[in-house]
């Protein structure tokens, strides 16, 4: 009948198992992956993270003369692939997980880049910082006339050059 009293000695020995979470630190290990942080100083806006992101939580959109790198925490699956592929090591994985909010807009983080306009068609195609970074990495070996030309115009330009060299035809 008094068999259950056995439990009392066990509970005295083992103590309380319950975490007092809101009043003590959470059980977060060093390996835990939470919300990511994009460093606006290091980020060049190349978009490598937006291509690897499985749920497309990171997106880059060109509007006017601004390129916005948008991070929507609500879609993020915290895989850390963006931090792995970032060539500038601008993305760090923090251990922040207390992200609850009633406003969906609070879950957006944005980094705004200024864009470069194509010298021929006038369309903005890449960010200023990315062009500077490319210049720095290949030690100023890019031909001056090709640096600020968008990929489509560059194709036409190259085709025209080859055409004039091989066939001897100038123009279109």
């Amino acid at each position: 009948m008094v068999k259950f009293l056995k439990m009392l000695s066990i509970s005295v020995r083992e103590g309380t198992a319950t975490r007092k979470y809101p009043f003590e630190s959470p059980l977060v290990t060093p390996e835990f992956r939470g919300k990511i942080e994009v460093d606006p100083v290091k980020c060049v806006g190349c978009g490598a993270c937006t291509r690897i992101c499985p749920p497309k939580a990171l997106t880059i959109s060109y509007e006017g003369d601004e390129a916005t790198l948008k991070y929507f925490v609500g879609k993020c699956i915290f895989c850390g692939m963006c931090a792995y592929v970032c060539p500038q090591k601008a993305i760090t994985v923090s251990r922040e997980f207390e992200l609850a909010t009633w406003e969906l807009g609070d879950l957006y983080n944005e980094v705004v880049h200024t864009t470069v306009k194509c010298g021929i068609c006038g369309k903005s195609f890449t960010t200023v910082k990315l062009i500077k970074e490319v210049e720095r990495r290949i030690e100023n070996k890019v031909p001056e006339d090709l640096l600020e030309v968008c990929p489509e115009c560059r194709k036409k330009l190259t085709a025209r050059k080859i055409g004039s060299k091989v066939v001897g035809v100038s123009g279109e």
């Binding site: 809101p22 100083v41 009633w102």
Partner: peptide, 25 residues
């Protein structure tokens, strides 16, 4: 813990930490 935190935010016991952030590179 995040579920407990969310329930506390829902009941108005805590203020949410997340804020919309827009920074220029």
């Amino acid at each position: 813990e995040a579920i407990i935190y969310g329930a506390a935010v829902l009941l108005g016991l805590l203020q949410p930490k997340s804020k919309h952030r827009r920074v220029t590179a």
